[in-house]
Amino acid sequence: MAGSKQPIALQGLKRCLVLLGNVELAVACLLVFAMIAMVAGEVFYRYVLASSLFWVEEGAMIAFIWITFLGAAVAAKAGRHIRIETFSSRLKGPRARLIWAGSAHLIVLLIAILLAFYSYGYVAIQSRTLTVSLPFNVPRSWMFAWPLFFGMCSIAATQFYYLMDIVVQKRRAADAGTPLLEV
């Protein structure tokens, strides 16, 4: 196992990220069931009880947006985001491949940090308007800026781990930068 060759600090980061990934996944799964219950419940109300639950649209939407950004964070940990393979298979030697993969991780890391920074900046503005139909009104930042901010912070941490894994183990490990989660 390459994991055993990792320095203690990197192993610790790995354990934290795996734990974080599992928590994100669990929360998102619960939101999937909540979404199904809400939307199906609305139809039940309409046809059986002849009234409508108008908070469902907003409630399900908040769940959906959180599922998306939590799911994006999990997908980063599982290495599942779609990319189009161009030159990597044609590169000669493990070193060139590691540099190639490492720079891709670095670029995604920078993009995630920038997005986390910018999304935090919108929290205040989006908090000025509230949701309208939920039983308790929620600032719209909980629908937009916060899920993006959280997802990007998690992805930034994940990319940082991949990058460090490659930098630290550049010579020995053939599996440096392998996905954190298997799902």
């Binding site: 309409r46 002849a50 409508s52 108008f54 907003e58 309208v132 139909s133």
Partner: peptide, 19 residues
């Protein structure tokens, strides 16, 4: 539409607002 005053308004007329 998804706005509380509209929902309240239609409900006040006895109708059943559906977003």
């Amino acid at each position: 539409p998804q706005l509380d005053n509209w929902l309240a308004s239609y409900k006040a007329l006895g109708a059943n607002p559906t977003p």
